[in-house]
Design a protein around this nucleic acid. Structure first.
Lengths: 223, 223
DNA sequence: CGTGTATTTGAACCGCCTCAATCCCTGTGG
DNA sequence: CCACAGGGATTGAGGCGGTTCAAATACACG
């Protein structure tokens, strides 16, 4: 939407210590808000990892509906695909998002040479599978309250902000809406209602603290 | 629901030629309708592949809502997980479902010894990732008509029934409902409506032929 | 032929989407 | 410093779509 000069800056030695041997073939890049990542080169030839910030993988349908099929946070890999990354747009959500990029050919050569590296890549792929399954559990809920509630719990688990002093959502209500397949207004109303029920507490729109995790996940509470 | 005598029969040399070197450590088992697969032993220690039939991975919430988080068809792998297969129930959907089971330890040892096998497992994991992403695109739709339409298209692509003489759905309307996060009645009504619009044609409840694939996927049609 | 399950259809209610307006916060420029 | 603009977030009102409850139908199996 506001993406012209498309050459990201480079940086070395970011805050995130990447515990992977793939490090040796990685290129670290930094991206601006709403900037398209790797879309022009076809994606299929590289694997990626988010080191800082947040990334969304999305698609816009002919109707105009946008779907955010995946939301990547620090530590998450993406680009694990069999064929071409067909129709997905990948873009940085927040300013200063840092991405590690691994050329697929070279990474696979490393894996062929060292079983330990092969194991690690396999493990990362399995993590991706687990993450997508969790996401299906969230999006597959029937009521908006359940979707938003379980989404917030999942985010709290994935975001680094430890010890229950709350998290800072990296994405807007609009993103949450397109991620869960509901409207922005419903997202806002749901969050407000969850707050009134005492299941969460807010300190600003993006600051969320999980109060009653179990009720949020079950969706079985009286509300 | 109807799962007592829990010892599956064994069979060798099924119709499905499994094109994988993992074959050497595979145990082939056959399962009855609604039979629980591998749930008691904790799943985490094995990888699986569907050779015939169909398998669902699901969860039942405290509310009583059942969610089918994954639907496995012939050729699909499952059990690619990092930790324990936490809370999922895996069960055969149709009679005579054939599963290949690979002990994780032995399979990983094979991968360590042969980069080619490691590549294959990696590729299978990537296929799983692609499948889950496709699924997220389907359940993430906003209208029931779009969900059901794109679901049918995806099933037609995945099921072996080649040449557009139609497919035979391996699962019931109830399964589709719990898979898409909508009610059974809505599934039925959606299918009826898609038929009336001429986007699909039916020959019995389970026999579906895709007529207008593009309109089904876009969901942008006049309806 | 009876029983149970799967599927379809109907009717009423409610949740969510849509459209619209308002509020809030941040940044910008006079 | 204030005015203004713009995007994000919230709130309100109305209509539609989907859930729920109920019943009818179709079909397989013993």
């Amino acid at each position: 939407m506001m993406n012209e000069g498309n050459h990201p800056g480079r940086s070395r030695g970011t805050a995130w210590t990447a515990p992977t041997v793939l490090q040796s073939v990685a290129t670290i890049t930094q991206w601006r808000r709403e900037q398209e990542i790797c879309s022009q080169e076809g994606c299929a030839g590289h694997w990626y990892r988010v080191l800082e910030g947040a990334v969304r993988k999305c698609i816009v349908r002919p109707n105009g509906q946008r779907q955010i099929v995946d939301l990547l946070l620090p530590g998450d890999f993406f680009g694990f695909t069999t064929h071409d990354q067909h129709r997905f747009a990948v873009q940085a959500v927040i300013e200063g998002t840092v991405i590690a990029c691994y050329p697929r050919r070279r990474a696979e050569a490393l894996a062929d040479a060292d079983p330990q590296i092969a194991r690690e890549i396999r493990e990362r792929a399995f993590e991706t599978i687990s993450r997508l399954q969790e996401q299906l559990l969230v999006v597959g809920r029937m009521s908006a309250l359940e979707k938003v509630g379980s989404f917030l719990v999942k985010m709290a688990e994935r975001l680094p902000g430890r010890r229950n002093d709350g998290i800072t959502l990296p994405i807007s209500r609009y993103d949450i809406a397109d991620h869960l397949g509901i409207s922005v207004e419903t997202v806002s109303r749901s969050i407000t209602e969850l707050q009134h029920c005492g299941l969460i507490s807010l300190g600003g729109p993006r600051r969320v603290r999980i109060v009653d995790k179990d009720s949020l996940e079950d969706g079985s509470k009286d509300f």
